[in-house]
Structure formats: C-alpha cells, structure tokens
Design a protein around this nucleic acid. Structure first.
Lengths: 148, 148
DNA sequence: TATTGTTATACTCTATAACTATA
DNA sequence: TATAGTTATAGAGTATAACAATA
C-alpha cells in the first residue's frame, strides 16, 4: 500500500480537510479563512505593519487593507499609529481578538492530540521527523520552481 | 521536538504549500485551483453530471455552472447530453483536458517521489500508515463536528 | 412533486495601477 | 526618490433564491 503517489494524494486530502476545518465554527462571527489567517499571523508576530502582513501572507497590500477593515469592523483588531514612522499602521489584537486566537490555539492542540492519540512515543517521534522532512522538501520545491 | 501541536502546525503548513503548488504552472492557461479541482474530479470519475460534481466538490450547483463554463470556454471539458435523462448535462474531458490531467498525474508522482526520496521501504511504509490514520481521524472529526 | 441546471444578486478574496502622505 | 497605505477597478470563487425544463 505504501507508494509515492499515495503520499501526495494523502497530503492533498489532508490539505483540503485542514483548510475546511480552519474557521468553520468561526465563520458565523465573520471570521472567513483569509481573515483568520491574518488574525493568526498577528497573534504570532504581535503588533505589526500591514506591509509586514502582506509579505508574511504573500498577498498584496491592497488585500491586507480589506482584511484589516473587516477584522477591525468586527472588533478583532485595532489600527494604531506607529510611534515614530507616521506612514505605518500597526495592527494589534483587541481583547476579543486575543481571546479568539487563544481559543483557536486550544482547539488546534485538541485536534492534534486526537489525530495522534495512541501513537507510542517513538512512533510519534518518527512521524514528526518524517513530516518535517516532507515539509522541508515541499518548501524547497516551491522555492526552486517559483521563479517563473 | 515531537509534540501534538507540532503535528497540527506541520499539517497546516503542508496544506498551504500543496494548495499553492496545485496549478501554479497551470494558472496561465486559465486553470485556477477551483477549476483544476473540478477537472481532476472529472478525470477520476469519468463523464458525470454537474449535480454529481456539486456533491463531490461540496459546492453549490450554481458554482459548478460557472466552473464548467470557464473550463468549456478554454477547451478542457465539453457538455454533452445525457442519453436518457434530458435534464442532465454530462461533463466530459476533451482531448486537451485528458492530456492536461495526465500531465498533472505525472507531476504528482514526480513530486511525491521527491518528497520521500531516500526513505527506506519500511520507513515509507510506516509513514504512509500514519498518514492514513491521521487522514481518517481528520475525516471523522469533520463528519462529527459538521452537523452544525 | 422532485430534480437538473440556469439566471439574478451579493459577498469575499485576490490582483494591478494610480494616488496621498510620509521618510 | 522610495515606502506605507489607500482608492479604483476587475476577475474569480462562493452562496441563496427564484425559475425553466424535464422526470
């Protein structure tokens, strides 16, 4: 049963499932996948400029404007002035945003725990190592192939 | 290094990378991710009704209409009459569509082979088994949680 | 009456290009 | 001159609702 194709098909399937899961219960609150992704990024990086977010998400600055607009309108983030550079807008989490991302993190942990429940320590260890390898090679492929 | 959270983060990362990769060289030809997904489905199922595609892709019938319109316009698929039920439109691959999906399959095999290159047989075997387990559990989670 | 696909309408995500305010 | 963010415009993906043709 173990074959190369199998691996790719599985990864594709997993990609679809994970994507579907991200922000399914969140959509009612206006947290679409793209907005969730941005919120998640701010959660990890702390207050940051929209420019930085555009780069991090590999998306146009214009797009970030729209996403931040929507998130601000719904109370998840706040736009603040950069202390020294007046061109820059700093995006920060509101209390609601912080609470929401904290819940997401908890949810991720719960899901991940369920996914590998019952794996003996050494098996989990190997699985993580292999996942790392595959991820690294995917990154390589993307970077090498990217320069159109 | 091996931990539950690690697994989820990796899967999320992989999801993003795989998604990005799917149809990057194809976009110039008008093959966006959603259209590619539909094309891929027809490749696997053979000629099928738009209704069946809507169900398979978990998407509205209206959406399928648009995707098939675009694919037909670009010569990847053809609409044909169902032999007995005149309500039904059968979507089939054109020669171009068949050639394109064949190339995609080849590309998948090449990528997958690279991802697990150098894995000894038993390690690949275990990795596939674990991927299967994780995929199955993801499916479970989605199905259980889905009924809103 | 139920089903298939379509038209109508609307919202989200995304991009490029032109513009404003600041460095 | 270069950078950060915005307005303007456009294409793609998605959904619901109403409708036509067919079963």
């Amino acid at each position: 049963m173990a074959s190369d194709v199998h691996v790719f098909d599985r990864l594709l399937e997993i990609a679809l499932l994970v994507q579907q899961d991200m922000g399914r219960e969140l959509e009612p609150a206006g947290l679409t996948p793209a907005r969730t992704h941005l919120l998640w990024e701010v959660h990890h990086r702390g207050p940051c400029s929209q420019r930085a977010l555009a780069t991090a998400l590999d998306v146009s600055p214009r797009n970030v404007t729209g996403l931040v607009d929507a998130l601000e309108e719904r109370g998840f983030v706040r736009r603040e002035q950069h202390p020294t550079d007046r061109r820059v807008t700093l995006v920060t989490l509101t209390e609601l945003g912080a609470r929401t991302t904290a819940e997401m993190a908890t949810s991720h942990r719960r899901i991940a725990a369920h996914l590998v429940a019952g794996f003996p320590a050494d098996r989990l260890e190997r699985f993580c190592t292999d996942l790392d390898t595959v991820t690294d090679r995917l990154h390589e492929l993307m970077d090498v192939a990217a320069p159109s």
